[in-house]
């Protein structure tokens, strides 16, 4: 099962609990796969990720008062999860699945914050 298929399976599991985050995503690095969704990230994070997010502004605040609050995206949350036990993962080497809106299964375009954070 590839990363996209596994992400879809994760989406189905969340829906079965009537849980509807705005975005769900899967991530992979060096054979390890994890899944997460949009939510305020844990402020206790790896330095590389924290420093990159800080280039955008303060955590949980919208850059220029618009768009997704910094650290609220599914990409950030799934990367935090991926970095548990391996804090040296280069952010630009993380492979993401297509971000999905669980309610509709629509693909969600990557936001400007995440384009910057993960060099996508």
């Amino acid at each position: 099962m590839n990363l996209e298929e596994q992400t879809e399976k994760y989406v189905i599991k969340l829906i079965s609990f009537k849980f509807k985050p705005a975005v769900v995503i899967g991530a992979e690095y060096n054979g390890k796969r994890v899944f997460s969704y949009s939510k305020p990230c844990d402020s206790n994070m790896r330095n590389s990720l924290r420093n990159k997010l800080r280039e955008l502004g303060d955590l949980y605040i919208q850059k220029n008062g618009k768009g997704n609050p910094i650290g609220n995206c599914a990409e950030v949350n799934v990367s935090q999860k991926l970095m548990i036990g391996n804090s040296t993962i280069p952010l630009d080497k993380i492979i993401f699945s297509t971000p999905i809106r669980p309610r509709t299964k629509q693909p969600v375009p990557i936001c400007d914050n995440c384009k910057h954070t993960f060099d996508k």
Binding site: N68, P69, N72
Partner: peptide
């Protein structure tokens, strides 16, 4: 933060149109 991370179901009432449902995405 909750609004930006959840796909919330909400409802608005109108006397002409009845109860309307919205998905916040």
């Amino acid at each position: 933060l909750e609004q930006y991370s959840r796909d919330i179901d909400y409802y608005i009432y109108n006397v002409t149109l009845g109860l309307l449902h919205f998905a916040s995405a």
